[in-house]
Design a protein around this nucleic acid. Structure first.
Length: 267
DNA sequence: TAACATGTTACGGT
DNA sequence: AACCGTAACATGTT
């Protein structure tokens, strides 16, 4: 369940561990988690889909990938399965992460993370996103929305829903979008992120999906396109071929890009 | 019940 | 050298 808003909720849930001291730490990840023994958890932070447990001088970055989960328990809670990361604190509480990827982040977190890219952060900067997008006019919008360096926290659901909200076809090219529409897409990404967050908190997210996992377009009622591997990232796309406009680059530009990309001269 | 999914990374080949 | 595509991984839900 890990798109940015879900991680933000997880961060809030784990905030109660702030200040706790680790008694024992282990897990199946290829890290020496004993490094955490007797260290005090200074803060629980997040950036996009990254959950960050901050200690003095370093942090543990936990990524839930597609299947990750987190369980809170105490000494009496039997540990189910073998957690990727398992932390036991001095007060007897425990924190187990299953199916996550974990890494150390050395030094100051702010030196590693660009807050302006996090769609849910107060530091989010739409203009910065726009600047990054200008560099790659040929990229498909369905790929660019999933680019964590530009839209940290966006996942496949947010991508599908945002593109429907702004009526942009996922196979459109960034450089083909009129400026005002591009600006709307960027703004709507953050707006939907907060809608997702609110709905997720109330446990009503799914009932608000307009296209994701839906059969028909809520506007024209035609059958939605359901494509299982769209774009470079090969993620599922739910979109309406009729209501979402396809913005393509001028033919010459497009053709020269293709030629360049394939490395072959046209016949 | 088997298949699939809100994802990333490592690796080998161009 | 930089870029590309594919495989590998892991678990809860339908």
């Amino acid at each position: 369940m890990p798109e940015g808003p879900s991680i933000l909720i997880l961060r809030e849930t784990l905030a109660r561990f702030t200040g706790a001291v680790v008694r024992e730490a282990d897990g199946r990840v290829a890290l020496d988690l004993t490094r955490l023994r007797h260290r005090r958890l200074l803060a629980v932070r997040s950036w996009g889909r990254h959950l960050l447990l901050e200690f003095d001088g370093f942090s543990l970055r936990v990524h839930l990938l597609l299947f990750g989960s987190c369980r809170i328990g105490d000494a009496t809670t039997p540990s189910t399965g073998s957690p990727a990361v398992s932390l036991r604190f001095d007060d007897g509480t425990r924190l187990d992460f299953h199916a996550v990827s974990a890494k150390w982040v050395e030094g100051d977190l702010d030196a590693h993370y660009d807050g302006s890219a996090d769609i849910l952060s107060p530091a989010w900067d739409a203009k910065a996103a726009r600047g990054k997008l200008r560099i790659a006019p040929h990229t498909l919008v369905c790929d660019v929305l999933l680019d964590q360096a530009i839209f940290a926290g966006v996942g496949n659901i947010i991508k599908n829903e945002v593109l429907f909200r702004v009526r942009i076809h996922p196979l459109s090219r960034i450089g083909a979008l009129p400026d005002p529409l591009l600006a709307r897409m960027i703004d709507e990404t953050r707006i939907y992120g907060f809608d997702f967050l609110a709905w997720k908190r109330q446990n009503v997210l799914k009932r608000h999906w307009q296209v994701h996992e839906q059969r028909n377009c809520p506007l024209c009622h035609r059958t939605l396109a359901r494509i299982a591997q769209l774009g470079k990232r090969r993620r599922r796309s739910f979109h309406c071929d009729h209501c979402q406009a396809l913005h393509v680059l001028p033919t010459l530009f497009d053709a020269s890009l293709r030629t360049h990309a394939s490395g072959n001269a046209p016949a």
